[in-house]
Amino acid sequence: MAGSAVEGEDIVQEAVVKALAAHDGGALVERPEQWLFRIAHNAAQDHLRRRQR
């Protein structure tokens, strides 16, 4: 999705930071794989939107 490995790494780092912040904030996670995938997917879409500007 990102187009390069460097951008992909940035997206993964952003997703991990968001996931840790949500988990520390008390988010209840029933399906952790789906939850983390959704965070990563949203982070990738956010990155693509920023790149288009």
Rank of each mutant, 00 (worst) to 15 (best):
A44D: 04
Q13P: 00
A5L: 04
V16M: 10
R31G: 00
G26Q: 11
R53P: 04
A15K: 04
I11Q: 00
E33K: 13
E7K: 12
A43D: 01
D10Y: 00
R50K: 15
I11T: 01
R49M: 07
N42S: 14
H23K: 14
V16S: 08
E7W: 02
V16E: 10
A5S: 06
Q13T: 11
A21E: 15
L20D: 13
L36D: 02
A15W: 00
L48V: 07
Q45A: 06
P32H: 12
I39E: 00
Q52C: 10
A44W: 01
I39T: 02
D24V: 09
A27K: 14
I39W: 03
K18H: 08
D46K: 08
E14I: 07
G3M: 08
G25K: 13
Q52A: 15
W35T: 00
A40S: 11
R31C: 02
E30T: 12
D10M: 06
Q45I: 15
G26P: 09
P32Q: 09
Q34I: 05
S4P: 01
A44P: 01
H23L: 15
Q52D: 15
L28M: 09
E9T: 05
K18F: 05
Q52G: 10
L36P: 04
A21D: 15
Q45S: 07
S4L: 04
D46A: 14
R31T: 09
E7A: 14
W35V: 00
Q34C: 02
E9S: 04
E9L: 10
V16F: 06
L28E: 15
V16Y: 06
